[in-house]
């Protein structure tokens, strides 16, 4: 019984961790290039809504996901333009993007409320193989998931590889650390920043699509429920490293899923509900202590607009 319980908490934890993971990895890229985008929540919900609408119309989850990525990307370009070309305040622009996304989807989503998503459009977990999924405790969590979840891990690993093991990765990181130096070496700082912000938007859109296509198939207002903010926190916790983001996102998902199993032990659900947020603060403090110890922090030029020849 106990093993079954843990197995199911792990299984759900990985599922709820998936949108966090995609959004976090996207934000890592944006921040690595020097753009702080606090509008993840807004881009995510735009993606979630787009995926639902397209999924309903086409019954194709992959098309829906692609559309969500495109929508998230489009939304991120507003932020990119304000941050990069207009050199506006990135904190406020991100907040504006979140507000705008929540408002837009509430307005556009009115007629979709109560509509069901066709079964073919949903992403449903199924075992890779019965034997593997039957492994006690971890089998279900690791081998009985949906393709999207595996894809998100693959994307994260791939993006980690790009960031740390390729020339492109060096370029991106140098733009976030010292754009003037990168510029002097012939790197197009604006292009890199636009590309990274756009990638962040696309991944946030995909993260949203996982919510409406798999996690909570259907459309209700505010369906992202603050996940975008948690992704911002996880970015810092992961020390801007996509591999650590995998661990952080799943840890977060598992803790969230596990709180209810403490209710029968007499804990107040309200205080249990606060645990994920307490954990976020703890994670941030731990992450910060870690960055201090290793003497590595946020990208040096994070949030600072770049203008050639200007300091």
């Amino acid at each position: 019984m106990q093993a079954e319980l843990i197995s199911s908490v792990l299984w759900i934890g990985l599922r709820s961790g998936t949108p966090l993971l995609l959004a976090t990895v996207g934000e890592i890229y944006a921040e690595r290039s020097g753009i702080l985008n606090l509008g993840i929540e807004g881009m995510m919900i735009i993606g979630a809504f787009t995926a639902f609408a397209v999924g309903q119309a086409t019954s194709s989850p992959w098309l829906a996901m692609a559309a969500a990525a495109a929508a998230g990307l489009a939304a991120s370009l507003i932020h990119a333009f304000i941050s990069i070309h207009l050199r506006g305040n990135q904190v406020v622009s991100g907040l504006a993007l979140t507000m705008f996304g929540l408002g837009l989807t509430s307005v556009a989503g009115g007629t979709f409320v109560g509509a069901a998503l066709p079964r073919e459009a949903r992403i449903i977990p199924s075992p890779l193989s019965e034997e593997l999924a039957a492994i006690p405790v971890i089998g279900k969590a690791l081998f009985d998931q949906d393709p999207f979840l595996y894809l998100s891990i693959l994307i994260s690993v791939l993006l980690w590889f790009v960031l740390y093991k390729t020339k492109l990765g060096i370029v991106i990181r140098s733009v976030g650390e010292n754009p003037a130096a990168a510029d002097a070496l012939g790197v197009n700082v604006y292009a890199v920043r636009y590309a990274c912000t756009a990638l962040g938007g696309a991944l946030a859109g995909m993260a949203g699509s996982y919510i409406t296509l798999s996690l909570r198939p259907g459309w209700v207002e505010n369906i992202t429920a603050g996940r975008g903010w948690i992704a911002v926190a996880l970015t810092i916790f992961a020390l801007w490293d996509p591999l650590k983001a995998i661990a952080g996102s799943y840890l977060f998902g598992i803790v969230e899923a596990g709180t209810y199993n403490l209710q029968p032990l007499g804990f107040s659900q309200w205080l249990l509900n606060a645990i994920p947020y307490v954990l976020t603060v703890v994670i941030l403090v731990a992450g910060a202590t870690e960055t201090m110890r290793k003497k590595m922090g946020a990208p040096a030029a994070l949030g600072v607009p770049y203008v050639r020849g200007e300091k």
Binding site: L86, N89, T98, L102
Partner: peptide
């Protein structure tokens, strides 16, 4: 939700015009 959109839009434009 129109009001949220309104607020977001105002902020975007204020930021853009700050330039």
């Amino acid at each position: 939700g129109m009001i949220d959109m309104f607020n977001g839009t105002i902020l975007f434009f204020v930021l853009a015009f700050e330039f």
